[in-house]
């Protein structure tokens, strides 16, 4: 069925994406092509526009210009939930779990688009609804177990330790059955040990769930270690793109970080 041409078509093909807030050009001509199964990194100093790129890739901000081709379809202009249903999932830099719901319910909400019973059966709680709900419960528990979150299934998200919340947010994103997973600074606030575990988890997740991953991270070691390729943003402009070795030694990248007085790669 699949011709070689089709397999080599990138899963995500972003072309000349730009956005401005008032006079501020937050992102200019962002271009990125991700082959299926890739684990790519997106780095840059604070305020470079990384999160803004994610917001455009999930339909939260409407780009002023450009195209987002996901599996060949331009998604620009569609509402957020369409991005998710087509297979893009994300986590947030400042965790945005449903705080007053249990970990399990957080996951269940992410299964929402895959649940197909109608409104009338739902009102009457027909047998098919109970059956589906039982299945959903099971699927979600299995997912929690896979990510070592089972013991927290019935704990309210807000009462979970910080690291667990981060992991739950990843689990929730995975529950939408994504093809492309966008992780916004998953290592933020973690200690070195936790970061090590996280690195392993991310590579494991890519294999286990067969997802393409785009990762925003300030933690250079992590990015250099696990990402096959890296894009560097500065002031909304892509200043470098390539393998980690090249990025590390790219003078423009070093300047961007040093110029900001930030972390050095």
């Amino acid at each position: 069925m699949t011709t070689p041409q089709e397999t080599s078509r990138p899963i995500l093909d972003v072309r000349n994406l730009s956005i401005a807030f008032g006079g501020l050009k937050a992102v200019t001509n962002f271009t990125l092509s991700l082959p299926e199964g890739e684990l790519a990194g997106l780095i840059g100093p604070n305020g470079a526009g990384k999160t803004t790129v994610f917001n455009m890739l999930t339909g939260i901000y409407a780009p002023t210009e450009g195209e987002i081709l996901f599996r060949g379809e331009n998604l620009v202009g569609k509402p957020t939930h369409d991005y998710t249903i087509r297979g893009i999932a994300r986590t947030f830099q400042n965790i945005r779990l449903f705080k007053n719901l249990s970990a399990l319910d957080n996951i269940k909400i992410a299964r929402h688009p895959r649940i197909t019973y109608g409104l009338v059966p739902a009102f009457l709680r027909s047998r098919s609804v109970t059956e589906t709900e039982r299945q959903v419960e099971e699927e979600c528990l299995v997912l929690l177990e896979k990510l070592n979150l089972l013991p927290f299934a019935d704990t309210l998200a807000t009462n979970l330790p910080y690291g667990i919340q981060r992991r739950l947010e990843i689990a929730r994103a995975l529950a939408t059955s994504p093809k492309l997973l966008l992780l916004d600074e998953p290592a933020a606030g973690m200690n070195p040990q936790e970061v090590d575990t996280l690195a392993d988890s991310i590579t494991w997740i890519r294999k286990e769930f067969q997802v393409t991953i785009l990762l925003i991270e300030h933690h250079m070691q992590l990015v250099m270690e696990i990402c096959n390729r890296i894009s560097v943003l500065n002031f909304g402009v892509t200043i470098a793109e390539g393998q980690s070795e090249d990025i590390k030694n790219d003078p423009k990248v070093i300047e961007a970080y040093l110029g900001k007085g930030g972390k050095v790669a």
């Binding site: 339909g59 998710t84 945005r96 909400i109 739902a122 009457l124 609804v129 709900e133």
Partner: peptide, 29 residues
């Protein structure tokens, strides 16, 4: 029945965090 169905969960998600609900595939409107 409604509240404890997928529909009800979608509603609750809108309450908890409308933006996150959208990224979970919930058509919030």
């Amino acid at each position: 029945n409604y509240i404890y169905s997928s529909f009800g969960r979608a509603c609750i998600a809108c309450r908890e965090d409308e933006l996150a609900a959208g990224t979970m595939g919930v058509d919030t409107t």
